[in-house]
Simulated assay, not measured.
Amino acid sequence: MSTSIDAVVADIVSFDDEPLILVDSDDNVLGHMLKAQAHAGEGVLHRAFSIFLFNSVGDVLMQQRAESKQLWGGFWSNSVCSHPRRGETIAEAAKRRLHEEIGVDADVTWLYKFEYQAQFGDIGAEHELCSVFIACSDAPVVGNPNEIADFSFMSPELLDVALTEHPDNYTPWVKLEWPRIRDAYWSTVVDLLNG
Rank of each mutant, 00 (worst) to 15 (best):
residue 140 P to Q: 05
residue 131 S to A: 13
residue 187 S to A: 12
residue 84 P to C: 10
residue 122 D to M: 13
residue 51 I to F: 02
residue 78 N to S: 10
residue 127 H to W: 03
residue 192 L to A: 09
residue 70 Q to G: 09
residue 83 H to I: 13
residue 170 Y to Q: 14
residue 17 D to T: 06
residue 69 K to W: 10
residue 16 D to S: 14
residue 6 D to F: 09
residue 23 V to G: 04
residue 156 P to T: 08
residue 99 H to R: 12
residue 155 S to W: 05
residue 4 S to Y: 02
residue 77 S to N: 04
residue 89 T to A: 04
residue 145 P to Q: 02
residue 52 F to C: 07
residue 133 F to T: 05
residue 1 M to D: 14
residue 9 V to Y: 04
residue 27 D to F: 06
residue 174 V to Y: 04
residue 142 V to T: 13
residue 175 K to P: 01
residue 37 Q to Y: 06
residue 168 D to I: 07
residue 128 E to S: 03
residue 126 E to A: 15
residue 157 E to H: 01
residue 169 N to C: 10
residue 48 A to M: 12
residue 50 S to F: 01
residue 183 D to V: 12
residue 79 S to E: 09
residue 191 D to M: 05
residue 60 V to W: 00
residue 169 N to V: 13
residue 88 E to V: 07
residue 77 S to K: 08
residue 3 T to D: 09
residue 67 E to I: 11
residue 7 A to E: 12
residue 129 L to Y: 01
residue 4 S to V: 15
residue 138 D to P: 09
residue 86 R to K: 04
residue 76 W to F: 12
residue 96 R to H: 00
residue 15 F to S: 15
residue 82 S to G: 11
residue 137 S to K: 04
residue 162 A to K: 00
residue 68 S to M: 09
residue 160 D to N: 07
residue 188 T to R: 09
residue 80 V to S: 04
residue 2 S to C: 13
residue 23 V to E: 11
residue 74 G to E: 06
residue 18 E to Q: 05
residue 159 L to T: 09
residue 95 K to L: 13
residue 16 D to W: 09
residue 22 L to H: 03
residue 94 A to E: 00
residue 95 K to C: 14
residue 22 L to G: 00
residue 105 D to Y: 08
residue 44 V to N: 09
residue 192 L to T: 09
residue 129 L to D: 07
residue 37 Q to S: 13
residue 129 L to S: 07
residue 95 K to G: 03
residue 7 A to R: 10
residue 48 A to D: 06
residue 137 S to Y: 06
residue 107 D to F: 05
residue 139 A to Y: 08
residue 175 K to N: 09
residue 151 F to C: 11
residue 139 A to F: 07
residue 150 D to R: 13
residue 145 P to C: 11
residue 147 E to V: 13
residue 179 P to K: 03
residue 167 P to L: 14
residue 169 N to W: 11
residue 133 F to I: 05
residue 121 G to N: 11
residue 112 Y to N: 10
residue 116 Y to S: 04
residue 131 S to W: 07
residue 94 A to W: 08
residue 21 I to P: 03
residue 42 E to S: 13
residue 175 K to S: 01
residue 172 P to D: 06
residue 173 W to A: 08
residue 126 E to S: 10
residue 8 V to M: 08
residue 18 E to I: 15
residue 167 P to V: 14
residue 179 P to H: 00
residue 182 R to I: 15
residue 73 G to M: 03
residue 190 V to W: 02
residue 44 V to G: 03
residue 178 W to H: 02
residue 43 G to W: 05
residue 53 L to Y: 02
residue 119 Q to S: 07
residue 73 G to S: 06
residue 99 H to Q: 12
residue 44 V to Y: 09
residue 16 D to Y: 01
residue 141 V to Y: 06
residue 58 G to L: 07
residue 121 G to R: 02
residue 43 G to F: 04
residue 133 F to G: 00
residue 37 Q to M: 15
residue 92 E to Q: 07
residue 172 P to Y: 03
residue 18 E to K: 01
residue 159 L to E: 00
residue 73 G to D: 01
residue 149 A to W: 02
residue 149 A to H: 07
residue 24 D to A: 12
residue 84 P to W: 04
residue 108 V to R: 07
residue 25 S to Q: 14
residue 44 V to Q: 08
residue 160 D to W: 01
residue 94 A to Y: 01
residue 13 V to E: 02
residue 84 P to E: 10
residue 160 D to C: 04
residue 84 P to L: 06
residue 19 P to H: 03
residue 189 V to E: 07
residue 59 D to L: 12
residue 175 K to A: 15
residue 191 D to T: 08
residue 127 H to C: 10
residue 157 E to M: 13
residue 15 F to V: 12
